[in-house]
Design a protein around this nucleic acid. Structure first.
Lengths: 235, 235
DNA sequence: AGATTAGACAGGTTCAAACAGGTATGTCAC
DNA sequence: GTGACATACCTGTTTGAACCTGTCTAATCT
């Protein structure tokens, strides 16, 4: 509808490259041609090519790195769990429910995470087996507080999803770190919350994601039923 | 800090070697392949190999010695402490011994791995703390049998390293998968082997590596001391 | 005025090659 | 057997070239 006015050259370049990415001609991880090659291909100046690539970069479709080039990242930041260890649910048939335990604003309460002392939005959730009622995951997410979070405290999460809620506020994680280890014994407090036996070993996953400029987006600490969850990675 | 997606070659090399070290394929004290051998294996220049090794050296995972080569200096990462992630490796100074339990030829004896029924070379190893004598890792490696493995049964591994032994026979892994989960209770048999208490929870790591054309190279199943070992990943 | 171009420069990445010096081992003379 | 030496292999270091993105400036087009 509103495409009546002429398209700038950067916009045209971005549109054509975006079509190649979305159609699969250029796939996730592929390198784009170098800027000078794109200059030849589109018969425009390097400035226009660079502006076109900048459009794609802000859309999250590509990422650039000095000395290397531009690379397709389509799919990389769509779902947060695409990269890193993927969580493998070993027994697929179980029906699970989810419940939010709390959504609140507080000073960072979890151990070393790079967010010490900061005010955070805290979201604690559990998932549990419908049949037994025992929780299979306990997940504590912490996000550095921003003024526009007030609404979350009253209205809750959008579509029940924290990452969706953050995304709608322009917060997108593109990189991060993840640690996994065995928690030898479930604490009595967490055991009570989860409806499990204290002292049980659990799989503990900790994950810190960051924006493109390195600012922390979200710190998540999860306790997982070791019988149901494992980690899987391809390399 | 580190934008990891478009990965440089040094970063890729460091990541792959780090995975081998952390999963026990390369063990404490093992010599890494020489730089020129790594040049061939990764098809990169020596500069890139050296930068990759430098990354591992700054992480404290290896130590280099002029005229000798690079050696793994890593006894597991302590990530379950309250002091901070960057200190995770500083406790790696514990002196550890290694012992080979058996090297033999047998029909595949480990659970689902894609090698069912095949004849394999089996190498079982443990590593233990010198002070206590308790094993911190128990590792069972299985490699599809090849005729030129006969010599291994009589002469043992080259430089005590299975990966080196395979490499000298032209077997090099370029990709693979890894699974991690919690073993809720150490079996009495394994407990006896490791000198630990039966019923202890352990971190279990399973790893299947493949050659460039998809043929399985090695299946490794490791039981790791959950207090000493964890998994870490950047993305 | 804004879009576009052309050019120059800085700095990161990678490769190839060469040279220096450390370390282990085999060989030869004694 | 011991010591001296050559040799092979290892890491450390430097250089130069080719190619990449990041940034800036000045001129040109519409």
């Amino acid at each position: 509808m509103s495409e009546v006015f002429p398209e700038t050259k950067p916009e045209r370049i971005a549109r054509l490259l975006e079509a190649e990415i979305r159609s699969g001609v250029l796939q996730d991880g592929d390198a784009l041609s170098s800027e000078s090659a794109l200059v030849e291909r589109f018969s425009v100046s390097r400035s226009s090519v660079r502006k076109g690539l900048a459009i794609l970069a802000t859309k999250g479709l590509i990422r650039k790195r000095v000395g290397l080039g531009s690379f397709v990242t389509f799919g990389g930041s769509v779902i947060d769990n695409e990269r890193g260890w993927s969580l493998a649910l070993s027994d697929a048939g179980v029906s699970m429910g989810a419940r939010i335990l709390k959504i609140s604003r507080l000073a960072m309460d979890l151990a070393p995470s790079g967010l010490e002392g900061e005010d955070v939005l805290a979201v604690d959730r559990i998932r549990f087996r419908e049949e037994t009622g025992a929780a299979v995951t306990l997940e504590r997410a912490r996000v550095p507080w921003r003024p526009d979070f007030d609404q979350i405290l009253t209205d809750g999460l959008e579509a029940g999803s924290l990452s969706r809620t953050l995304e709608s506020r322009g917060i997108v994680a593109v990189s991060g770190e993840e640690w996994a280890n065995v928690l030898p014994a479930l604490s009595p407090e967490d055991a009570a919350i989860m409806g499990r036996a204290a002292g049980e070993p659990m799989l503990r996953l900790r994950r810190l994601t960051r924006t493109g400029d390195g600012a922390p987006v979200e710190y998540v600490e999860s306790l997982l039923d070791p019988g149901l969850f494992g980690l899987h990675m391809e390399f």
